[in-house]
Nucleic acid binder design. Structure first.
Lengths: 132, 132
DNA sequence: CGGAATCCTGCCTGATACTG
DNA sequence: CAGTATCAGGCAGGATTCCG
């Protein structure tokens, strides 16, 4: 029984979640996906599925604890799938879901921004630090 | 005057920094900007400059310490400017720089993703948690 | 109003060792 | 290979107090 126009419904949908509000679930979600390991894992999986050891090698410096923890969290949130193949030794591959790819598109922009604006940031820092 | 084409510059920038490498400066930068407070501050400043107290009110639940710390970090990295007006009491306004706006464009996508995909993530979680 | 300084808690993170 | 388990430390982050 729509008592709202489409425009009104759009406004209501937008108002449904607001990360500016401390108790909104989207605030917690924003906190989870605002994580460098999340960004790097999704970026690594951009070109297709990878095995656990391939992920560990691609993302230099990640501990197995953080990698496993990040992968579990992403799996739980439906952003990637974990597939176990019963070989000897066992093979585990991770692959982005459609939902994961939609986030990956955003996060790749973040990783790219960091890499392409590094010089400007370094320059700004030296200016800032030079001040008395 | 650019001595490289835009495409050449992009290629050079890509090769210069790689956030997959642990010791690359862009990895640290990625860590800094992968922060919910950074995302929320830049999103709050999207529509123009704001005062300190306005930022604190917009971003519900942020402590004064984290807000100040985040603002300092963003100012140091050249993403926003801090302007002190000598009124009584003093007025301090924060405004995005051009560099800040370029990052804000990316991060707004992140905040928007969290809000618009919240339902799908919640659904995925309940499925995951229901498994034995 | 817009901070700075301080104290204190906890959980995030890394290192190490063990397993199927 | 792909984890789990455990332990220890460091710092993120909140609460409180004080200042120009």
């Amino acid at each position: 029984m729509p008592t709202m126009t489409a425009a009104q419904r759009r406004a209501a949908d937008k108002a449904e979640y607001d990360a500016f509000l401390a108790q909104c679930p989207s605030r917690q979600l924003l906190d989870r996906i605002s994580d460098k390991w999340v960004t790097l894992v999704l970026a690594a999986l951009e070109d297709g599925p990878l095995r656990y050891s391939q992920l560990a090698r691609t993302i230099a410096g990640v501990s197995q604890k953080m990698l496993t923890q990040t992968l579990r969290s992403l799996e739980r949130d439906g952003l990637l799938t974990r597939t176990v193949t019963a070989t000897v030794p066992v093979t585990v591959t991770y692959e982005l879901t459609e939902l994961g790819r939609s986030l990956q598109a955003v996060l790749t922009g973040l990783k790219g921004w960091a890499e392409s604006h590094m010089d400007q940031v370094l320059s700004a820092r030296s200016s800032y630090d030079a001040q008395p």
